[in-house]
């Protein structure tokens, strides 16, 4: 096989893997948008907050230590214990549920039946609030996240492709794990929304708040539920991205990677987030491989949006989005 073709295939494989990571972020947006029609600007910050909390719990860090020390003149920083990764993930999940309850109680409850733009603005405020609270709780230095996820080249794929084609493909083991986790997550979410009572209630709320309320569905419970699930998805995304770069403020910027995925896949479809992620991932990697060197490189950020816009020309609601026809 010609060398260029092999390299393109390697770029495509890595694009698929990157696409899964983008889809993980996009999933959180889709879940909340589906259930409440709110574009959650704070989703990226939720990933950062979840990852910060996970590392903080694992390291036995005292939350708000800087604040406590400044106010009381103490010198406390750590509890002196180390929490195993599984337990820390569970406890972080509990914190994210607590966050969901907090958001419902202090933000959403007061905005029922307000226009969507008001809810969107509220999530912008929420993003800045969580950024500040995250810094205050856990500090803003870079933290190493070690939950036992493998990293580095997959020897098996490298050797297998070398034996077949005479060129070993590079696939990061972390990306493989992310793909498996994302697949499990999507399968669980699909089963939950299709076959569970809460899932059906969630879809009913997504269709019409008022109608759902009239048949006895608790809007508050559904909002807490969906923000909790989005919080858990944010935790998974934060873990995957945090393992690559350390846990730091930039994690909140991964939301930028989800926007073209949502535009392409549609804001209301879980499969759309996955397919959209894969198309964006493969598209941007192949473009960077083939055209990037001719135009100075660094094409991925803008090309993802161009690709999404091209799709929007033909399907304004996104590939899997619901087509809304309003007649006057």
């Amino acid at each position: 096989m010609p060398e260029q073709l092999l390299w393109a295939a390697e770029a495509m494989m890595n694009g698929l893997m990157a696409g899964v990571l983008y889809a993980l972020v996009a999933l959180g947006f889709v879940l909340i948008f589906k259930a409440s029609g709110v574009f959650n600007y704070a989703q990226g910050v939720m990933a950062l907050f979840a990852a910060l909390t996970l590392v903080g719990i694992m390291d036995g860090q005292v939350p708000f230590a800087h604040l406590i020390n400044a106010v009381f003149g103490t010198e406390i920083h750590h509890f002196g214990w180390h929490v195993p990764a599984i337990l820390a993930i569970f406890l972080t999940g509990v914190v994210m549920v607590g966050l969901a309850i907090f958001i419902e109680r202090f933000v959403l409850r007061h905005l029922v039946n307000q226009p969507d733009i008001i809810l969107f603005m509220a999530t912008i405020g929420l993003a800045y609030f969580m950024e500040g609270v995250g810094d205050l709780m856990w500090g803003s230095e870079i933290k190493t996240l070690d939950v036992g996820l493998p990293q580095g080249i997959s020897e098996t794929i490298d050797e297998a492709t070398y034996n077949w084609f005479g060129y070993g493909f590079f696939i990061d083991r972390l990306d493989i794990v992310a793909t498996i986790i994302a697949a499990l997550l999507v399968a669980s979410l699909t089963i939950f929304s299709q076959y569970s009572k809460q899932g059906r209630a969630l879809r009913a709320v997504a269709d019409d708040h008022q109608a759902a309320l009239s048949v006895g569905i608790s809007l508050r419970f559904i909002w807490v539920l969906v923000w909790s699930i989005a919080g858990f998805v944010a935790l998974v995304a934060g873990m995957m991205w945090g393992a690559k770069s350390g846990v730091q403020f930039s994690l909140s910027l991964i939301a930028l990677k989800a926007l073209p995925v949502l535009m392409l896949g549609g804001f209301t479809s879980i499969p759309g987030a996955i397919v959209g992620g894969l198309i964006i991932g493969v598209g941007e990697k192949l473009f960077e491989f083939s055209i990037g060197p001719l135009v100075g490189g660094a094409t991925e950020n803008w090309f993802a949006y161009v690709l999404a816009l091209v799709f929007l020309v033909f399907r304004p609601q996104g590939l899997f989005g619901e087509k809304i026809i309003e007649r006057v």
Partner: peptide
Amino acid sequence: AVDHPGQEQKSQWL
């Protein structure tokens, strides 16, 4: 070139 913030650099390192 790596675009801001630089969270994704797979293409460059490939």
